[in-house]
């Protein structure tokens, strides 16, 4: 089986004023269709850079990102991003934020009525249909992130990229949204790549967890499979042996073998 998404020997460095900062070094990763992969690592390890490379927002220095065996080097709606800070346009209502994506992606293929149904369908998926006329400043952080997810889903992406989507949320809201994402993943079977620094979140949501070594020149340290059957239930998992073992493996990687050293820069 050929890989759906393939990161092929990717290097990334930033040049600034004659000095070069190596961010990522020799990244190789293949992701299958429908898979949920988390990328975890300490801050500054380049995991966000890695997501931006897949999204095409940042160009690779060497190597290539392949989606269905075709190289991608520019952003596009088939790799939709859920941004860390939601990035909703504050002057548009919830509905119009999603509409912006829908008219751009489906303007030529769907009629106005179909577009409307599609927008409402996606807002329903994240349970935000009731707030469609509100502006982002009038809804809570968790709701904004839900709309961000709806906007990304509305592009009908081949891959959904989530950049620490729940990082700025409180624990309860985060749990709700994690459940929402799991449900969407189960329903639509999307391929999802998520950046996170939360071990529990990674284990709960992922089929595989990609663990990054510390930067500069971060590499993929280890890839851990999470063989827990879906649907997963956070309460039942709290005492599950496999869950605990996976959690321990990630913790060991992060805090024993690749302890974050503040002065490593």
């Amino acid at each position: 089986m050929t890989a759906y998404l393939k990161l092929d020997h990717i290097d990334k460095h930033f040049d600034r004023g004659g000095s070069r900062t190596e961010v990522l070094k020799d990244i190789n990763l293949t992701i299958d269709k429908g898979e949920f992969v988390s990328i975890i690592g300490h801050s500054g390890c380049g995991k966000s850079t890695m997501l931006n490379l897949i999204a095409g927002l940042t160009k690779v220095s060497a190597g290539a990102v392949l989606l269905e065996n075709r190289e991608v080097n520019a952003p596009g709606p088939e790799r939709a991003v859920v941004f860390q800070n939601h990035s909703l346009l504050p002057w548009l209502s919830v509905y119009d934020n999603v509409n912006l994506a829908v008219t751009k992606v489906f303007g030529a293929t769907k009629t106005k009525a179909e577009q409307h149904d599609w927008i409402m369908h996606n807002l329903d998926l994240v349970q935000m249909a009731h707030a469609r006329e509100r502006r982002p400043s009038e809804i809570s952080g968790g709701m904004k992130q839900r709309v961000g997810i709806a906007r990304a889903l509305a592009m009908e992406p081949k891959i959904l990229l989530l950049d620490e989507p729940f990082g700025a949320l409180d624990a309860l809201t985060r749990a709700h949204l994690q459940d929402a994402v799991m449900e969407i993943h189960a329903r639509l079977g999307n391929t999802m790549v998520m950046i996170t620094h939360d071990v529990d979140e990674a284990v709960l949501l992922s089929d595989r967890i990609v663990m990054m070594t510390n930067g500069p020149a971060a590499r993929i340290g280890e890839v851990l499979s999470v063989p827990i059957p879906r649907p997963r239930d956070r309460i039942a998992l709290a005492a599950d042996r496999t869950y605990l073992k996976c959690r321990e493996a990630v913790l060991k990687f992060l805090y024993e073998r690749h302890r974050f050293v503040e002065a490593a820069e």
Binding site: A74, L89, L100, A101, K104, V105, M155
Partner: peptide, 14 residues
Amino acid sequence: IPQDYRNVAEVLRL
């Protein structure tokens, strides 16, 4: 203009 909005525009290929 925040980079976030530019990223949104790029992903949407505006």
